[in-house]
Amino acid sequence: MTTYTLRAKRRRSALRTAAFMSPWLIGFCVFFAYPLISTVYFSFTSYDGFTAPEFSGLKNWAFVFNDYPLFWPALRNTLWLVVVMVTCRVVFGLGVGLLITRIKTGAGVFRTLFYLPYLAPPVAATLGFVFLLNPGTGPVNSILGELGLPTPGWFTDAAWSKPALTALAVWGVGDLMVIFMAALLDVPKEQYEAAELDGATAFQRFRFVTLPNISPIIMFAVVTGIIQTMQYYTQPFVAGKVASGVMGGSGQQFEPGYPDKSTLTLPQVVYNLGFQRFDYGSACVVALVLFVLAMAFTTLLMRRRSGLIQAGE
């Protein structure tokens, strides 16, 4: 084989690769690289959508970090959600996954029932939960009241709004359940049998056989959960808006976070700055904070779960 034909072949194969990759290459440039660079640029300008953007240095950054009242609460809420909501989802998902692998009768039916809520469209599911947890007339408080238990304000009480959102997230735990189920079924049977011969209790078998085998999946669930929390938008926004009652009729503007900024998340802050206050520059500052956080955890994901991309290399 001459060098000439080898080079031609190489060029052909490079062209072929480029052709196959082209939709994504264009998409990457137009819908990722360009807007990301623009976001950085806008974050240093004053821009309200009417008059052309004007360079303003670090003004927006100072405003967001020092004077904008919604930024820090949003970050604190995100931290709360990462700690509590992600943990609850992972623990509950694992629990349901364990349960479903042990159910012998009607496993298919149970699996479908457990999975269904995950499919409920977020707006619909959130509306449903706001109704179910309606403090005055909702079925949940009706039942709690009958049982003589306390009846919290749920989505209308700053102390209970995040737990209510957590309940909603746990309800839709079907995705994690399926992932854990698959992982649990992959644990080699022999290891359990060996442990049983050694006289291990059920808890010990879980602790020393199951957990080590599925720990990468738990890690995966935790990190993707954190990234999802960074993006958490529809449920808290709709829940806050519907529960606040500030909608229509009065024409009052709904500021996300009801009650008392307790349901604010960073994406909602971007919305508030960009599409309610129309301070595009400051919105871009928060967008960049969001970007840095999301990328940090993505990197963690790629490191920790290198299996995610290594296969087939």
């Binding site: 137009v30 360009y34 660079i37």
Partner: peptide
């Protein structure tokens, strides 16, 4: 327009 994309073009429309 996406094909002939000019960077930051979106920044320049003033008010008529």
């Amino acid at each position: 327009a996406t094909a002939a994309l000019s960077l930051l073009a979106s920044a320049c429309t003033g008010q008529s």
